[in-house]
Amino acid sequence: MFNHKDAPDGTFFNFHKEPPLVAYEFFKLGMWIFLATEVLFFGGLFAAYFIMKFKWPEIFSLGSAQLSIPLGATNTVILLASSFTMALGVDAAQRKDKGRLVTMLALTFLGACGFLVIKYIEWSGKISHGILPGSDVFFSVYYMTTGLHLIHVLIGMYYIGLMFFRALQGRYTDEGSSHAGVEVGGLYWHLVDIIWIFLFPLLYLLGAH
């Protein structure tokens, strides 16, 4: 059981700092709950996917055939790798190894950039062929799911960047500091990865190739 050690003085800017262990326990539970909401959020989209696919199987397999499996697969590998470096980063933070944490965060960020580049190639290719949201139900679902996933990647990149600079300052590895921030960021990044692991086969592989 944990409690605030110091009283808040009632204003936003002077709010106290929680002791490390408290922050760790609170943030982790909070993040797990947030991940549950994310699963339900994408769950609604997946429901729309399955109902549309059930209604229009031909449109879905024709649409799917127009997606490039090599590009999608590369992106899957990149995201998996970045999830792996993120896990190593969390491990480094737990061991208070500042150098390795900074390296791992940088690698994860690079992975995310790679994902963005390939996503750009895919989308711009589609758009230049006049394939837009609303072209047919498959591509509407395609743009909605990958678009919302992309927004999650961007939010993740912002947070990874933030963690990178904080890690440089030693905010996670100094004596008495909490690495809860890295732990939570790691959980989030794994979720982004897992959503893609579902999207890739559903959109790219279940089609007429």
């Binding site: 729309a48 549309m52 449109i59 609303g134 509407s140 909605m144």
Partner: peptide
Amino acid sequence: MERVLGIGIFDAGMGGD
């Protein structure tokens, strides 16, 4: 998105439901 981009997932005219 239906109103902005016309994605058609809920629009019967575009094959939606």
